[in-house]
């Protein structure tokens, strides 16, 4: 099983993402955006890592979404191959219309707005360890295939524009009905209080990750590659830090993609 980690100019998490994929048993390589796009067809799955593709010029993800490699990626996704977009990768998938994947560009990831007790307390870039609640049933989505509904996963987030907004009044209802909302920001007990710091960016209904209707494309703002090893966790048993291969919670995302490829293959 071979995955392509697609690197655009300005991506900066491609190596960590590849290491995390390999730790889950996937083979892979970094695929530069300017390689012949048809070479993408040789891979079983795809990851678009975090960073600042094209320096976030125009809008985060907007320029990368127009690259020829994205056309091929869409075609491969239409064949059912799994795609995981992390942070800037999620922004690219939203700008390309691959997520939520209903009718063109259905949403935007706007600047973070942190609200507490009705007051805006902060805006823009924020970096923290957060808890996510998995709200899809196991098997619904390629990137969370092995995760039970209601499970909590901790990982870091670091972004300025992850606030999911839409001008379509019915979109969120549709996403709920079709079980396309995969992850929500929650507290350590799993409650999704719609206030900072639980809702870290003001995203509607605490949405942190969504999938397309078919479930093979997942986009999420937090970084699973930054919690794929126990030694990456902030509060960990010192003994675990010395065991370099002990998995962290984020590895489940990559193991899920591997399992999805095995099952769908």
């Amino acid at each position: 099983m071979k995955v392509a980690v697609i690197q655009f100019p300005g991506s900066n998490c491609e190596h960590e993402t590849l290491v995390a994929a390999r730790s889950a048993g996937l083979n892979g390589e970094i695929f530069r955006w300017n390689r012949p796009a048809e070479e993408l067809c040789d891979f079983d799955g795809y990851m678009i890592p975090g960073g600042f593709s094209y320096q976030d010029r125009l809008r985060a993800g907007a320029i990368a979404s127009k690259e020829p490699v994205m056309e091929t990626l869409k075609e491969e996704a239409d064949e059912g191959k799994p795609v995981l977009g992390i942070c800037n990768g999620f922004q690219i998938l939203v700008e390309s219309g691959m997520l939520p994947g209903l009718d063109g560009v259905d949403a935007a990831l706007a600047q973070n707005v942190m609200v507490t007790k009705g007051e805006i307390v902060r805006r823009g870039f924020y970096c923290a360890w957060i808890s996510l609640r998995h709200d899809a049933v196991a098997g619904r989505c390629s990137g969370s295939y092995l995760i039970d509904k209601g499970s909590l996963i901790d990982m870091p987030m670091a972004h300025a524009e992850g606030n999911l907004v839409t001008a379509d009044e019915n979109l969120i209802e549709k996403l709920n009905e079709e079980n396309q909302i995969v992850f929500r920001y929650c507290d350590t007990g799993g409650e999704t209080k719609n206030e900072f710091p639980v809702n870290v960016n003001g995203s509607v209904e605490n949405i942190a990750g969504i999938c397309n209707p078919e479930g093979n494309v997942l986009g999420m703002m937090p970084h699973p590659e930054r919690s794929s090893f126990a030694w990456q966790l902030p509060f960990v048993d010192p003994a675990a830090r010395r065991q370099i291969d002990t998995p962290g919670p984020g590895r489940l995302i990559f193991e899920s993609m591997k399992r999805y490829i095995e099952v769908s293959g």
């Binding site: 125009l58 809008r59 907007a62 127009k66 700008e95 560009v105 259905d106 949403a107 935007a108 706007a110 907004v165 839409t166 001008a167 379509d168």
Partner: peptide
Amino acid sequence: VLLINPHKD
């Protein structure tokens, strides 16, 4: 087609 995302711009 490019300059705006209608959901915020």
